[in-house]
């Protein structure tokens, strides 16, 4: 007789938390910044996907809000070695945004208000692996954490989850982004500890 519910196993105990190599557990949510925090009014916010053939798909904030959202609970791993487990987000899956996008590109460059960029293979944005998020812990995402909307790609180090995301450019060739051109790893898998170039 099944008297132990799934929920009994569901919550990870902290002491048992499995972290990627070299990471430590934190409970706060550190803010790392490479520049001034952009403040983008929702009336002028937009998100675009630009394909390798020059086609542009564009969403206003109102468009984004009309799309079906998901509420992923994910672990975050920052290359500066802190990890935060079980974080709750709300956002639109990239699978939804890519539904009508025709592309044969293999590479993507996410770009942000404020000028930040980060590159990743397109396949790392699809199949339920990435979201455009606008709520954290049930509240609107604040500007220091990337609000109004941030890319969330939790299976890679957090610098790939571009704050203040403005669009994704699809390309046939890889184009290293802001930190990837300054010594950080091109892919950034925390479980393989890909922090720096050559790791």
């Amino acid at each position: 007789m099944g008297i132990v519910s799934r929920g009994f196993f569901g919550r990870r105990r902290e002491g048992d938390a499995e972290l990627p190599p070299g990471q430590y557990l934190t409970h706060d949510f550190p803010v790392l910044s490479a520049g001034p925090t952009p403040r983008i009014g929702l009336d002028r916010w937009e998100f675009t996907i630009d394909t390798e053939t020059g086609e542009t798909h564009r969403w206003s904030w109102a468009d984004l809000m009309k799309l079906p959202s998901e509420t992923p609970t994910v672990d975050l791993h920052c290359v500066t070695k802190w990890s935060k487990l079980g974080t709750d987000w709300q956002g639109v899956s990239l699978d939804v945004l890519f539904e009508d996008v025709e592309t044969s590109a293999e590479y993507a460059l996410a770009y942000s208000y404020g000028g930040y960029t980060t590159n990743l293979p397109l396949e790392d944005l699809l199949d339920g692996k990435a979201w455009i998020t606008y709520k954290f812990d049930g509240e609107d995402l604040t500007p220091p954490h990337g609000g109004p909307a941030r890319l969330l790609v939790p299976h890679l180090y957090l610098w790939k989850s571009a704050k203040w995301v403005r669009g994704i450019r699809l390309m046939n060739e890889d184009w290293p982004g802001f930190w990837e051109t300054a010594g950080y790893h091109n892919y950034g898998d925390p479980w393989r500890e890909q922090r720096y170039q050559g790791d």
């Binding site: 790392l32 910044s33 490479a34 520049g35 001034p36 290359v79 500066t80 610098w159 930190w179 300054a182 010594g183 950080y184």
Partner: peptide, 11 residues
């Protein structure tokens, strides 16, 4: 200067 992590960014 922003940082120091992940790197120093001087604007």
């Amino acid at each position: 200067v922003y940082g120091p992590e992940p790197g120093l960014v001087a604007r």
